[in-house]
Simulated assay, not measured.
Amino acid sequence: MESRNPLPRVDIAHFDTNFFDSKDRFEAWNENMGVLFDLLAPDGSVPKHDMTAQIDVCNLGDAVFGVTRAQSQFFSRDERRVARDGMDHILVQVFLEGGGVASSDDRINPGDMLIIDLDQPHEMLNTDFANLTMVLPRELHPHLSGLLAEFHGRRLGPDNPMVPFVAEHMCSLWKHVPEMDMGHAGIALKGTLGLLETWLTHESKLTEDVSPEVSLAVGKSIFRYIDQNLGEQLSPELLARTFRISRSQLYRIFAPHGGVSRYIQERRLRRSLHMLSNAVHNGMSIGAIGFACGFSSESQFSKSSKNRYRISPSEARNVGQAAAEANAAGPETMASEMPEFTAWIKSLGR
């Protein structure tokens, strides 16, 4: 019997500001963590002094996973940043040391978990800290991302026994990643995401008349249907009729997502933002993109975009074109010039 070629090992990267001269350390740190957040000193100023920070991270293909250690600083994403970079990922964090105060005013302590939806504004003043973070692309994990997004910016503490259980599971995965090839890592990641999804489905108390397993399966089918038909007229009545469930069951499935209408609106806005920032769609007018994503008029599209992102569709397109010009050297060249952590984050889900 022929032996199979061994699968590649998991790629692991290391970043440490101590590799750089003192005057260059913040810039180097910003080239890495700046892919996710705007970074400031605790007093709100741009750091001009020495910076201490390290990142140890691995690329699991469908997720980026690793430990970050850094001194106290202010992390933020405002509405314009959300609209500008189109970073549609979810961060699942376990704080190993230190913590801080999140935008929800929740105080984060060692042992706590924190969920950050990069499609929503976020601020956090961190103490000196160390955390374990899993970055998940929403497009690859839509149902889990929807469940996680409802906990955006909120502290999940050990008063819920599932929090330390999940945190210990994530820490165990991180401990054993260096021993794994990509096949093992894929299995381990699937198990970790399944654990998160099952836990949060239970937490959301989906239904009393349908089991969580059934609701989870039907929900995934409905989410796929919505994404495939964003340009059509979508309503709770249509979805309930199409999937042969009652409206009350439908509402319970979408309760963790803020309701059916809110979920559909969010998906339309995200799709439109992607189209506006992608040069492939430069030949389409603003109105045509709005109609393709299910908005009834250009004015409704513009109003919805401004309410959600504080930026008009035309401004979003200009920002996207500017980014495309900046990347004119080509993705391979750009990837070779940026830190591995930044390149892995940018390539997630693509």
Rank of each mutant, 00 (worst) to 15 (best):
G111I: 06
A322H: 06
G191F: 08
E315C: 00
G186Q: 05
F95T: 01
P331M: 13
L216I: 04
Q54L: 04
M275P: 01
A28I: 03
K23A: 14
I245D: 09
N160V: 09
V163G: 04
R25I: 10
D119M: 13
Q233E: 13
G183T: 07
E237I: 12
C293H: 07
A279H: 12
L239I: 15
L148V: 07
V163N: 03
D11T: 11
S248G: 03
S302T: 15
V177D: 07
S299G: 02
D78I: 00
E2P: 13
L140M: 10
M124Q: 07
M134Y: 05
I115E: 03
F165S: 11
A28V: 06
M275C: 10
D209A: 10
P236N: 01
E266R: 03
I286C: 04
S297Y: 06
V82Q: 04
D11H: 13
D85W: 08
N32K: 03
S215D: 10
G111S: 05
P6Y: 02
P42L: 07
L136Q: 03
H143K: 09
N109K: 09
K220E: 14
A102K: 06
E2N: 12
Q249T: 15
I12K: 12
G98A: 06
A41Y: 08
S248T: 15
E97W: 01
A185L: 10
M113R: 13
S72D: 08
D85A: 01
R107I: 12
V210D: 07
E208T: 13
I264Y: 07
G183H: 03
L273C: 11
